[in-house]
């Protein structure tokens, strides 16, 4: 490696670190975002390949979405595959780990663990074949990674005197739960219209839990009316996991009166 390319590596690593520092300054420290300087250093090891600069720009540009750590992880995986040096490949794996900390699931952890194997393989072709084989094996055994458990966010509620309504995001495998906070701290009656579909059997696909009520929801359209107290939230939870040829989805309309 010539001196100029070393300087290039250093410059782009520093650029990644600088962007990360700006993010820390404006958004506060987050373990996930440490993926960014690591990924920048990893991608910088690709100096000389035609994808180096675009990869780097895409990586940094991803900071404008909050999916930056995900993009950093993708860049890390890419580096593991194509980086000619062990240092770059190790940095690639390291940049995936912070993303894993924020998106932990057994599937994702297994995928990252499997990624450690190709890091130590010198030939690109062997790395590519081994990585693909491992990837397929993990997918076959564990299925694709699922949504990350996060703090529950209630649906947006609007209320006027005596009645309330909600805008509820559709429930899917990517967004498996909806929460409706009680509109007022007093007894109220709520009517939920739920269109459930996308599965291939008549077994329940979701649960509606509100106060002491639990309702199983199979495929079809359901209208449920409940009398609740002012401290009862309403939870609609998908109980189906990922399964090929099933696309569970629930559309919810809810209005309440008191």
């Amino acid at each position: 490696m010539g001196k100029s390319s070393e300087r290039g590596e250093l410059a782009f690593t520093l650029a990644g670190v600088s962007v990360w520092l700006v993010l820390v300054l404006f958004r506060g420290f987050s373990l996930e975002w440490t993926a960014l300087p690591l990924a920048a250093a990893a991608v910088a090891s690709l100096t000389g390949t035609p994808l180096f600069l675009p990869g780097f720009v895409i990586l940094l540009a991803s900071v404008f979405s909050l999916s930056g750590p995900g993009a950093a992880a993708a860049a890390g995986i890419y580096t593991v595959l194509v980086s000619p040096g062990l240092k770059g490949r190790l940095l690639g794996v390291l940049s995936v780990i912070p993303w894993l900390s924020g998106h932990y699931s057994p599937e994702a952890a297994t995928l990252v663990a499997a990624l450690m194997i190709p890091v130590f393989l010198g030939s690109f072709r062997i790395r590519a074949v081994v990585s693909t084989a491992l990837f397929i094996a993990v997918l076959l055994f564990l299925g694709p990674p699922g949504p990350v458990a996060s703090h529950p966010v209630p649906a947006r509620c609007f209320l006027r005197e005596g009645h309330a309504w909600w805008t509820v995001e559709s429930i899917t495998l990517a967004n498996p739960e909806a929460i409706l906070a009680p509109p007022v701290p007093a007894p109220f009656s709520i009517t939920l219209e739920m269109d459930c579909g996308g599965i291939r059997d008549s077994l329940p696909m979701a649960l509606l839990i509100a106060g002491e009520n639990t309702v199983e929801l199979p495929e079809g359209t359901h209208t449920v009316s409940l009398e609740l107290t002012g401290s009862d939230s309403i939870f609609v939870t998908l109980i189906r996991g990922h399964s090929p040829f099933n696309h569970p989805v629930i559309h919810i309309k809810a209005v309440a009166e008191w």
Partner: peptide
């Protein structure tokens, strides 16, 4: 295919 595999994790999804 990559987005298909990761659609439940990424904000842009499917």
């Amino acid at each position: 295919t990559v987005f298909c595999i990761l659609w439940r994790v990424l904000p842009l999804g499917h």
